[in-house]
C-alpha cells in the first residue's frame, strides 16, 4: 500500500479536507470502519493540539503527516515545528469527581493514548516528530 503524505498550514480550517483525504485513503485500503474512526480521531486530536497549542506566534507553519497501512496497523508520523510536546510523557488529566470540578483540558491526550497501540516521540532540532500506531483489521485481507 502506498504512503499518504499530507502537508498543510497550522490552520484548523483545513483539518476537514485533510481528514477527508485520510478517510478516502483508508477506505481504499479496505480498513474496517471502526478502525478508520480511531485513526480519524487520533489525527483530529493531534493536529488540533498542534494548531491550538504548538505556536506562540501568528505565523504560518507547515505540518506534515505521513500515513501508511500495514498488515495489522496504521502507522502515522506527525512532523511539526511547534513548541516541544511529548505526548508520551505529558501528564494526563485527573479523573473528575463532579460536573462542577470537571476540567475538559487534556482529554485529547487521554484519547490519543487510549486509541493508539503505540506512541513514540522524538525532538529533532526544532521539530516534533510523533509516531502513532493504531491496530486494525482489513475487510478483505
Amino acid at each position: 500500500m502506498s504512503v499518504l503524505s499530507l502537508q498543510f498550514w497550522n490552520d484548523l480550517a483545513v483539518l476537514d479536507q485533510n481528514r477527508a483525504s485520510l478517510r478516502t485513503y483508508l477506505e481504499n485500503a479496505n480498513v474496517e470502519v471502526h478502525a478508520i474512526h480511531r485513526v480519524e480521531l487520533a489525527f483530529d486530536e493531534l493536529v488540533t493540539n498542534i494548531c491550538r497549542h504548538g505556536y506562540a506566534d501568528d505565523l504560518d507553519h507547515y505540518i506534515r503527516v505521513e500515513i501508511r497501512v500495514a498488515d495489522n496497523h496504521v502507522a502515522m508520523v506527525f512532523d511539526d515545528d511547534g513548541r516541544e510536546f511529548d505526548p508520551v510523557k505529558a501528564q494526563l488529566p485527573d479523573k473528575p469527581e463532579s460536573i462542577e470540578r470537571a476540567k475538559p483540558g487534556g482529554l485529547g491526550l487521554l484519547l490519543l493514548r487510549r486509541m493508539s497501540s503505540e506512541i513514540r516521540y522524538e525532538r529533532i532540532g526544532a521539530r516534533n516528530r510523533t509516531y502513532i500506531r493504531i491496530g486494525i483489521r482489513t475487510t478483505d485481507r
Binding site: 474512526h37 480519524e40 480521531l41 483530529d44 486530536e45 488540533t48 460536573i99 462542577e100 470537571a102 475538559p104 482529554l107 485529547g108 487521554l110 484519547l111
Partner: peptide, 20 residues
C-alpha cells in the same frame, strides 16, 4: 453522531455545567 473527539466532549461538559 459517527465520531466524537475531545472538542465534542468539552462542549458536552461545559453545556452540562451550564444546565446544572
Amino acid at each position: 453522531v459517527p465520531i466524537l473527539t475531545s472538542m465534542g466532549i468539552r462542549m458536552l461538559i461545559s453545556t452540562a455545567r451550564a444546565i446544572h
